[in-house]
Amino acid sequence: MTALRVYLAAARLAAEQLRREPDAWMVLATTPLQSLAIVTILQHTGRDDLVGIAIVGPGLMALVQVALFDAAEQLTVDRSRGVLEPLAATPAPLVALDLGRSTVVLLVALLGTVESLAVVHLATGGQSSVHHPAEAFLVLVATVWATAGFVLPCTALLLMTRATRALQNAIPWPLALVSGVLVPVALLPVWLQPVSPFLYLTHSAELLRATTRPEPVSDLWTGLAVILVSGAVALVAGVVSRDRVFARLRRTGGLSLT
């Protein structure tokens, strides 16, 4: 009950902060523009078969960027505002707090995918669409879950480093590349391909692209299972790493910057 209460309170806090601090909405301005650029290039080169990338790629990139820049950074920002110590001194389960805040900002980022779909739909004269909306919905929900799990170890990592921005900038593009978000894994260099199946984003991207094609989505349930399990593993890793980081910060005095 307490965990749920904290989760909801954290989600409410994040929603209020989003309303008053519009930085996180910026991603919704850039995502459709990226989709437009990609679909234009694909049409110009005659690769209409890859138009799904223009719908899925920028949306998933937006999710990863928001996960790293907004969700995972929240405790670091709390520390700079002098809020982390009072937070740590409450009996609240901080995992519920992290998840509550992450859920809200990730759901906002998800709107980017909807925007991408709309832009690509218009750019292709209505020829591109999501042919399997129910499957796409399931994949998106699973992807948000996995990304929320992925946020937890990243939160711990950002708390441990002062090179926050460098890390946040370094992770998204390589991750997107290796997981085939922007370029299908089959088109990547052969030596890079073995890494891709271990990343949940690979499965999210492939399944979401499949929902933009008329033929039935193959391996839907296997893909969903991989994404959900990846999220659970990331969640557990996040809880363990966060506990360790907090123990270390209590030892070093790093819960505050003064």
Binding site: E16, G82, P91
Partner: peptide
Amino acid sequence: AFGGERGLYGRLTVEQNLRYWAALLG
């Protein structure tokens, strides 16, 4: 209460801050 200018969410109202902390206290 560690006090000072920091330690609260500045862009939220007094009531929102207190409601949030009340939830963290169960």
